[in-house]
Nucleic acid binder design. Sequence first.
DNA 1: AAACATTTTTAGTCTTGGCTAAACATTAAG
DNA 2: CTTAATGTTTAGCCAAGACTAAAAATGTTT
Lengths: 217, 217
Amino acid sequence: MTYSEENYLKVIYHLSHTANKGISTNAIANVMESKPSSVTDMVQKLADKELVEYVKYQGVTLTQKGMFMALMIVRKHRLWEVFLVEKLDFSWDEVHDVAEQLEHIKSEKLTNKLDEFLGFPTEDPHGDPIPDKDGRIASIDKKLLSEIGVSKKVICVGVKDSSPPFLQYLDKQQIALGSSIEVVAKEDFDHSLSLRVDGKNVTVSNKIASNLFVKPV
Amino acid sequence: MTYSEENYLKVIYHLSHTANKGISTNAIANVMESKPSSVTDMVQKLADKELVEYVKYQGVTLTQKGMFMALMIVRKHRLWEVFLVEKLDFSWDEVHDVAEQLEHIKSEKLTNKLDEFLGFPTEDPHGDPIPDKDGRIASIDKKLLSEIGVSKKVICVGVKDSSPPFLQYLDKQQIALGSSIEVVAKEDFDHSLSLRVDGKNVTVSNKIASNLFVKPV
DNA sequence: AAACATTTTTAGTCTTGGCTAAACATTAAG
DNA sequence: CTTAATGTTTAGCCAAGACTAAAAATGTTT
Ligand SMILES: [Mn+2]
Ligand SMILES: [Mn+2]
Ligand SMILES: [Mn+2]
Ligand SMILES: [Mn+2]
């Protein structure tokens, strides 16, 4: 498996969560910042290797084999993110780019020893679940903050977007994983939300609220 | 810098220690298990980027810039080897191949944080010195065991060959870094050596002895 | 100094993973 | 139900990094 093939599998895996039909070459190209024609080429190679199911014009889905490989890449990505935060004092907005590189290191022993060294974590620094060595992954039931009704109390359990600017914004507002949030009011005009976060009043836009995962308290 | 360019720089760096003229394309091809013609191509690219000095038919030498980059790759390689042994319980014969991958991860912050996490080690698991963040590298004065005279006492400080079979052989003979070695006798016929290693009698071939670095006690 | 042997470079080819432009399918409108 | 818009694939091209075979430079003998 090449670096490039691994990236395709990972992107297809992530896109599979928000769409239940086949993933279009266009969708893949958007995420990868490449062109649909390039995606078609690669997708055909992956189909030859039986990592994806592919029907022309109908999009692509992962096979069992492809799904497992994707999960192993996600596993490595998230374990390395934990390592960087827990052991090397990186902040949660600094880890993603480095993990993008580290996720391609090929050594089962390394992955499993790292897992052990970290105490078998179940979530990465952004609240995303970490697949175990057999590819099993917990699905936490979580909602977007934007979907929560007024006066409901929830706990922040994850971020949908883990780009540095968004994470830095959250840091600034002192919103972190584990923060308790109460939806005080929702503005009809711009759908912004008034919150009480760990006792402090904070107002956030709808865009922010629709990138924060929460669970009922 | 591509993965491939980095590997070339590293190989040129290592070869520079045993030869003081320019490194031949042939020598590089041998180490890289590729062909001299491929090396010529790449060496010309590295010269364009001013990472090496290259005169046709005269071999190649690292520039200041190329030397620094090579040292940073060696630094990462050796730091990761320490990490694998010290933190993840790898044995010294298992780390090299994984470090070959990890040495290409690009993040100064990661390298320096890892260095700190490991307590700023000065040597890797094979006794090789680790360059600091400015590229400074200690040169330990060490000799090959094969050059030591009869009845001299020395301490094992490094291995020249760090291939798994050789390292596993040393494990079997209970020869490790720090072992005290006395040369009891040298056989004229095959140049094999009778040793006392930490009090135990061991006989080793000349090939073994010329891959073990020692220093006078 | 010439001939031979060895080393090194050049010329031309291949594969991988991209791209653009053009052709073709599918979907949405009229 | 035909046309227009959009999405997708094909065809043809490119750069990186490898290779083989042939040419050229260098080194070693006689
Ligand atoms: Mn990430
Ligand atoms: Mn993450
Ligand atoms: Mn090594
Ligand atoms: Mn080493």
